[in-house]
């Protein structure tokens, strides 16, 4: 929408525009306050030296970049599994005719709200039996399990919007559903795939529960987990406390980058996974 027409009408008058600007700016300042407080603490005692020392002498012996890397590796497993499950399932629910389809679909999305903490006990057992403690698979799989209902919903919504005629021609031509799926549906679904991909990475980056419970090796620490790990590794010195604050600032960096470069995908990913028709 341009500023002239559409919602621009709302602040057509100069006075309204001023008020809107002031209100937005004030809210934004309020939102920046926690960030400012974190930065302020991060610069205490040693100033920028806090940040520098995190690289030469990392807290708890875990370099920050390593925690990013671990989050990314978990994110790869997470994304791969979610895509591998959601794409064919979305296709099936959206484009195949079979008995009990609607029931099965709604049964699938019943699991949208399952909290990780509620299945912590059994997944602990499963992860242990599979020998997956301290592996990226061990973190990525439970993350994926919790995301799959959302992924299926997103892909089904997408498949719903792909015209039947587009696929029908191929099916009638004698191409199997697998060919239709891989040659036609998957390429068409690329926007949805990209969206889901970004969302999975974002959630891996945010995941605190599984790494905290399933990782015992410091070198497996993820970015979200590090918030607690670093804190537990603190000694009594004021220097360490400031260094911890500095590490918090650094741990927020990937989110800033994600917003700067991936805002578009997140917006469309969220909205296409919404429960709507």
């Amino acid at each position: 929408m341009s500023a002239r027409g559409g919602f621009g009408l709302l602040i057509r008058r100069r006075r309204d525009r001023r008020i809107a600007q002031v209100m937005l700016a004030a809210t934004a300042l309020l939102w920046l306050f926690p960030a400012w407080s974190a930065l302020r603490e991060a610069l205490k005692v040693d100033g920028l030296g806090n940040f520098v020392s995190l690289f030469s002498n990392p807290l708890g012996g875990i370099p920050i970049w390593r925690t990013y890397l671990n989050s990314v590796l978990n994110g790869i497993v997470h994304t791969a599994v979610v895509l591998g499950v959601s794409l064919p399932a979305g296709y099936a629910f959206g484009k195949l005719r079979f008995r009990g389809r609607e029931t099965l679909f709604y049964a699938t999305i019943l699991f949208l709200a399952i909290p990780g903490t509620a299945i912590l006990v059994p997944l602990y057992h499963v992860t242990q039996e599979l020998g997956l403690f301290n592996t990226h698979l061990g973190i990525g799989l439970p993350e994926a399990a919790l995301t799959v209902p959302f992924g299926v919903l997103l892909m089904r919504n997408y498949a719903d919007n792909v015209p039947d005629t587009l696929l029908e021609a191929a099916v009638v031509d004698g191409a199997g559903h697998l060919q239709t799926f891989t040659r036609i549906f998957v390429p068409i679904a690329r926007p949805a795939i990209v969206n889901l991909f970004v969302m999975c990475f974002m959630w891996s980056l945010q995941d605190f529960l599984w790494p905290t419970v399933f990782n015992t090796h410091p070198e497996m620490t993820t970015a979200a987990q590090a918030v607690a790990t670093f804190h537990n590794a603190l000694s009594a010195s004021p220097v360490d406390s400031a260094r911890y604050s500095a590490s918090l600032v650094l741990l927020a960096l990937p989110a800033v980058l994600l917003v700067v470069f991936g805002q578009r995908f997140i917006t469309s990913g969220l909205t296409s996974g919404a429960i709507k028709d």
Binding site: A3, F7, I11, L24, A223, A252, A255, V256
Partner: peptide, 29 residues
Amino acid sequence: LLASGIGGRRLYYAIFLVPALTPIALVAT
């Protein structure tokens, strides 16, 4: 308000969106 074409839209979006994408553990801390 942001849809009404006010200046600095991208910056505002970033300010409001970053906390939601940061590890929640970090924001809470």
